[in-house]
Amino acid sequence: MSYQWDILGEEGLQFFGKMSASISHEIKNVLAVVNENAGLIQDLIYMHEKGMPIDPEQLKSVSQMITKQVKRADTIMKNMSKFAHSTDQLIKTESVSVNDILDVVTNLANRFADMREITLEKIPFDEPIKIKTNPFFLENLIWLCFDFAMDATGPERTVRLLAKEIDNSAQITFSQLGSLPVMPLETFHGKRVEALLSALQGDITVDTQAGTLSISLPV
């Protein structure tokens, strides 16, 4: 295991910044909906003061909308909190659930996928997989793979994600990558990915014919 801190530090900061910006954008959208609904209540009060009756059903609908947005914001913030805490022990490895890590990154990547009109489909695991690794570096590597996989997706516009344990290694596979044969792999598999793989003691395999990209990590 070796840490190329100059590359890991720069890449990690960029990754953290990109995700934070995306989260703040999502939260702003939630606030915008809540703000419009608060304004709608003010409009209803104003009209009521002018003699127009208030429709309880309309008030109920506004209240439900606000509750829905609060739940949405809570989900976003819980995921952000998990993500932020993955940097707690940056130079130590810890026992982590691959499923939990994939959930965090898939939730973060979903907004980027939506913008690119791509669906991320996570196949449920047969067995929970636990590995001893650095969670932040793993999240960073999975994000880079997601980003590349979204560019490499085929006409179905779906990236499928599967994790399983094979021969003492955890394997995370991105499939449905129909455009892999025409993708410039060297732009993906550069210094950043190499530095992360080295820190995680992992490996990446790309099968252009099958349209898959797999990360292997020691269990």
């Binding site: 915008a32 909906v33 709608l40 909308m65």
Partner: peptide
């Protein structure tokens, strides 16, 4: 869509 509908209504 939730933003769109509420703004439209207002």
């Amino acid at each position: 869509v939730d933003f769109l509908n509420t703004l439209s209504q207002r």
